[in-house]
Amino acid sequence: MKKVPLIIDTDPGGDDAIAIMMAKGCGMFDIRAICPVNGNSPLRDTKRNAMDLACYYDIDTRVAVGANQPLYRGLITNSNFKRVAKMLKKDGEDDFQYGGQMFDFAFPAPTKEFDPLPAWDVIYEEAVKAKGELVILAIGPLTNLALALGKYSDLAPLIKEIVVMGGSAYAGNHTPVGEFNVLIDPWAFAMVLKWGIPFKMVGLDATAQAYHTLDELKEMADMDTTIAPMLKTAYDGVVARSNDPNFPPHLKGRTVYHDALAMACLIDPEVCSFRHTRVEVELSSPIAFGQTVVDKRPALTAGEPNCLVAQKVDRERYLEIVLRCLEAFKKEEK
């Protein structure tokens, strides 16, 4: 079967690491580029992490560095947003500590070089090469894609599909209604969504259903794969967290790899149900800022549907996909 050309736009991040593992492991995709962006941590970390992963998973691809800041700083001012405001500190400020490491795992030194072109140019180049077949998995803030579409006016029709981990139809995680990836750069989200490119939004309400229990994480780590050391530290991290009295109960005994579900939807569209509906991102309200407002009414009146919004996840099926992808990293098969 012909492999599908795929670009992974990402801010790794532990859950990005699992998603990228799956992109390689499933064998269905020709990974044309990995494009790190400012997000889970500043670009200086996400770009190193992206390179580490490309090398660790032995993915022959371009790692093209993207944006080191959202399109606009200073959108988050309300006290409601303190946590995000902290994360939006300028690149290079040292007190920024969040997810800079992936699972606290020490990756081997990278053996490859970054692509000389920035992310937006590589996205465009690959879209042209793929002649309308390019699929994009976007699992960080959408800054890189927004800039690619802003720079190249003929790009939108060349992209076959965008699958995004981001947003939420109900609750948020960093504000009551705001999900992190969207909240970091909501203008970029609006800039991408508006083009009418087939767009799947895998939001928090879907990813929360795709959790891994401790036993399930252990099963992944115990497989005899080349990446077992990384998965072992991931498992140890969740165990440590589960035993830490400072952590809230809902973060104990299980974890969610949000981005991995978005990737799973590309591997097997049946893993999750979708509803075609209208999504708008709130850019003005001081309390709902960055909310992906999903039209949930039975009869739509808010305009043309522009998004497939993830609904019900088949968790067993999801876990099977993850394990199947891991098979590809088994040592015997090397």
Binding site: Q69, W120, G150
Partner: peptide, 12 residues
């Protein structure tokens, strides 16, 4: 200022 904004971010 669309072009100038995109320029400033693509070529920071």
């Amino acid at each position: 200022l669309t072009n100038i904004a995109v320029f400033l971010h693509c070529y920071s």
